[in-house]
Amino acid sequence: MAVKDYLRERFFPHMWCPGCGHGTILNALVHAVEELELNKNEIVMVSGIGCSARISGYVDFHSLHTLHGRALAFATGVKLSRPNLKVLVPMGDGDALAIGGNHFIHAARRNIDITAIVMNNRIYGMTGGQFSPLSGPGVKATTAPYTTIDNNFDVVELAKAAGASFVARSTAYHVKESTELLKKAILHKGFSVVEILSQCPTHYGRKNKEGDAVGMLELQKTNTAKLGSKALEDNPGLIPRGIFVEKECPEYCEEYDKIIAQAMKGRNS
């Protein structure tokens, strides 16, 4: 199948701003799904609220556009009730780690077989450019006119600590790498997290003098380095990209199947 076969073309052009990194992440995701030759009927995309969440309307999967921050909770219900489905949960900063932070760590803790994609643009775009828990200190936003004093989460470290069994990071600039990481995450059995640094030229780039989409992508290129690379060794201040965790752990739905087997045995004996 062609990439376009995974899109709901009638809703294009999409609603994202020119140069929005979320479009590139959508692009990487449909390429990943296409390359894996997944059956569209077996994919459920669950999203929350915000710019990122609109992604579920553009893909020709079963799509569930839910409440702000609750995508992973809805997704947990979908997955546990029908474990044969592939459940993809793209989230923005707020969905994943502000209002939805609790669901994020608990989904990771359960190691339920869901792929969480954190589209990190360090800003609340849809409401007009307020800072997020991923902005970090020193950022200008409409609710931080004097710059932020809030520290940011490190999504990778948080996901690792919470128990995710696959954790990776890339950027919208490194789109081939993003696609490969998404493929691995989707195939991984267990809770997988892929953080993709995204750019919001409209609300973040302008306010923080990072320029337009092109300028912001240049920063994604220069501010990051591959895990294990010389560049990262020479400059540990760069944001590392790559796979941070990839391990086999008991998966929640499979463990629950064992509970069912045990309960049925107890009942019949």
Binding site: F74, N102, M264
Partner: peptide, 25 residues
């Protein structure tokens, strides 16, 4: 589980409500 059904204790009340909606679908 005795009947092949599923029970999950969620992380909070909100998540519980959301999870049953997902399962209903």
């Amino acid at each position: 589980p005795q009947r092949g059904g599923k029970f999950i204790q969620m992380e909070d009340e909100i998540a519980s409500m959301c999870a049953i909606i997902g399962a209903s679908l």
